[in-house]
């Protein structure tokens, strides 16, 4: 009806008030989004500053040159951790969702202990373990991988459990009535349907392990400095430099690309009940 024309004045006033509220609400969201991104953008900006004045890619050249090993090590540990997490978590998730195991809650809680242990505590306790009992792998690549796996496989386990629980048993039953044996059912039907849950776990593992520095600080050997740890070490010793800014930018940019790819392919629904969602 023609309410607006009948009481034009007050209604226009009211609607402009509503506009103001709505504008402020969006401004608040954008303010926070700026706060999320600003540290990254400023870091990128600083990474382009040349110590001798002006702007250059000197920092990046330096980062890719002298930090190359660290970057490669970060990628290697991340990928190996992801593979091991998959191999450990999928059978474990099946056991927890589909098998009658006594004391399931306790077991799940025990598996998640590492998830709730503060990084420094985990780092110190692992360094004690490696010094006291497992000196053969102390400071090695595998010591890092072991720490990452134990710290992150629950992040893979949880989304897979969620996905497996959401997966109706009817698909597996349908496959069996159509003559598919246990392995075929698993490989052709169930794992593809769990795919997004597994991918969510991969994303979480990637984001965490690729950027981990604290546990690494306690257990990394001399020759095994990951990229994130390198950034920390230079910061602790030499303060802020364009080359570390460049390395930090590279790390965040890589992580962000992985996140974007995930959202593009799978959307955000499979991150529910996890760390990111």
């Amino acid at each position: 009806m023609s309410e607006t024309t009948a009481i034009g004045g007050p209604s226009r006033f009211r609607s402009s008030g509503r506009w103001l509220t709505s504008g402020l609400q969006h401004a608040y969201i954008w303010l926070w989004m700026a706060l999320f991104v600003l540290p990254f953008l400023t870091t990128v900006y600083r990474s382009l500053e040349d110590p001798k004045g002006g702007y250059s890619f000197e920092g990046y050249r330096f980062a890719f040159g002298s930090f190359q090993d660290a970057l490669i090590l970060s990628l290697q540990t991340t990928i190996v951790t992801i593979v091991l997490n998959i191999l450990i978590s999928i059978p474990a998730a099946y056991a927890i969702v589909r098998y009658p195991i006594p004391g399931k809650r306790t077991i799940l809680a025990a598996l998640n202990v590492s998830l709730y242990t503060p990084g420094a505590v985990m780092g110190l306790s692992l360094s004690l373990l490696f010094a006291y009992r497992l000196s053969s792998i102390q400071g090695s690549f595998w010591a890092l991988v072991a720490a990452y796996v134990v710290g992150t496989f629950p992040l893979m386990l949880i989304p897979v459990i969620v996905a497996l629980r959401d997966l109706p048993t009817v698909f597996g039953e349908a496959a069996r009535t159509l003559g598919a044996g246990r392995w075929r059912t698993l490989l052709r039907v169930e794992i593809p349907l769990l795919g997004p849950g597994i991918t969510a776990g991969i994303l979480l593992t990637f984001v965490i392990v690729f950027n981990e520095f604290l546990v690494t600080l306690f257990i990394a050997g001399k020759g095994n400095q990951t990229a994130a740890l390198t950034i920390y070490n230079i910061l602790a010793r030499a303060g802020f430099a364009p080359s570390t800014a460049a390395l930090a930018s590279i790390m965040q940019f890589t992580s962000f690309v992985v996140v974007l790819l995930f959202f593009k392919v799978f959307g955000s629904r499979y991150l529910k009940g996890t760390y990111l969602g």
């Binding site: 400023t42 870091t43 802020f240 930090a248 790390m251 965040q252 996140v259 990111l276």
Partner: peptide, 13 residues
Amino acid sequence: TFPLFGPLYLTYG
């Protein structure tokens, strides 16, 4: 997700 890449880069930034 930027803050989730860890407090190291965040604090640095």
